[in-house]
Design a protein around this nucleic acid. Structure first.
Lengths: 221, 221
DNA sequence: TCTTACTTGCTGACTGACAAGTAAGTGATA
DNA sequence: TATCACTTACTTGTCAGTCAGCAAGTAAGA
């Protein structure tokens, strides 16, 4: 602090209501992400989220109505991130190429935002039993992702890249199931299992279903 | 009630203290399994367990000391079941054969006792975040199972069944990660994903690591 | 001055845990 | 074999702590 300055305390910049709302939204969702990743959904109280975001304990309820509302808002923002990521990298691709891009996008999420991934998986897992109220929303999200993978597999099958005896619905479920299990493993073991190895194992599942086990031409990193 | 009978109420058969304890133990663990499978670990109170088992709300705490104690007892009994299952089917087998038997044992657990499997996975998943106190016990269990799988893979590698560039530790983690992810998928989707398909997908991961992709000679059912 | 963002006070419901009590089984002695 | 001292199984009363959610208030922006 330099004495004699005109103002010791910087005047708070005047923010519009929209700004305030957007900022507090962002901060609360960030705080929730961090806390969910570290302590799980049911291990985190709404009060904690508000305080960790730098506000009062009451704001999250006021903003989102309920704990469920907060989690749904968080899921929405994560889904938006993923859609953008896929739209960016898989646009124009079809069949096996598109499928591999989607797999890479999932792995890349875990690589780029481990915290968000841990939070997302906490939500998945607790929706199974601890918080059944989450199931519809989580189920819809997973179904959408699986459906989009099925489209890619069907294209591949139609184009003769994939064996015709493959059940695309089931194979999509297997690919995503394995992918999620491996990412959980990765999160649990503090990143001991390499993400590239995970990607290779899952792309291996795709290659198993292909007509000619084509040479790997994966995107590096 | 027939009047005039010598005794309306059948005299309760005299059970020894050991019998009583064993019976109440069994009942409480069964009730806990059912409740954990349906509502998750943190969604189930000790009182519920006691009452569902046909006793008072206080017995579980008296018997197991704490919620953690109850869960650990449940994990012990499940681990014992699995060890017995493996000792039965994989004894004398080595290398790839032993590895495939272990995979089948895991899948078979999900097939034979879906309720226990759902409960076990609830415990896994909540140990990640919602109940960190569980991590040591769960971690030790998973490590043991992984370690035993690594032994099989190493034997296979030494016997020339497996490629020599495979990292057995990592491959074991991948196999189990995928297996668990697929079983979770199976539990979530209400058994939509076929368990045989799951087994095939995971044995496929083993076959990828083999020198000559031998013809499948899996145990049917 | 009016609306919207945010805070604080409060409550009812629940839970894990403890402690004090009752009932059932055991083993020794007469 | 009856009874009595003792242990073990099980129940009930209770409490401290937590949490989601509401409602009434204050402050910031329009």
């Amino acid at each position: 602090m330099v004495p004699g300055m005109i103002a010791d305390r910087k005047p708070p910049p005047r923010r519009t209501q929209v700004d305030r709302r957007e900022q507090s939204d962002r901060r609360m969702l960030r705080a929730a992400t961090r806390l969910f990743a570290r302590q799980g959904v049911s291990g985190t109280s709404l009060a904690e989220v508000g305080l960790a975001a730098g506000y009062s304990r009451g704001l999250p309820v006021d903003r989102y109505g309920s704990k469920l509302g907060l989690i749904e808002a968080l899921l929405d923002s994560m889904a938006a991130w993923f859609e953008a990521r896929v739209a960016d990298s898989a646009s124009g691709k079809r069949g096996v190429e598109a499928v591999l891009e989607r797999i890479e996008a999932h792995v890349d999420g875990a690589r780029k935002s481990p915290l968000a991934t841990a939070a997302l998986y906490s939500i998945y897992l607790e929706s199974l039993a601890a918080m059944p109220a989450l199931r519809p929303k989580v189920g819809a999200l997973l179904d959408r992702w699986r459906g989009e993978l099925v489209v890619g597999l069907r294209q591949a099958q139609a184009a003769g890249e994939l064996r015709s005896d493959i059940d695309c619905e089931q194979h999509a479920a297997i690919i995503l199931g394995a992918l999620r299990g491996l990412i959980i493993e990765h999160l649990m073991a503090d990143a001991e299992t390499d993400l590239d190895a995970i990607r290779d194992a899952v792309t291996g599942l795709v290659r198993q279903a292909m007509l000619s086990p084509a040479p790997r031409k994966m995107v590096r990193r």
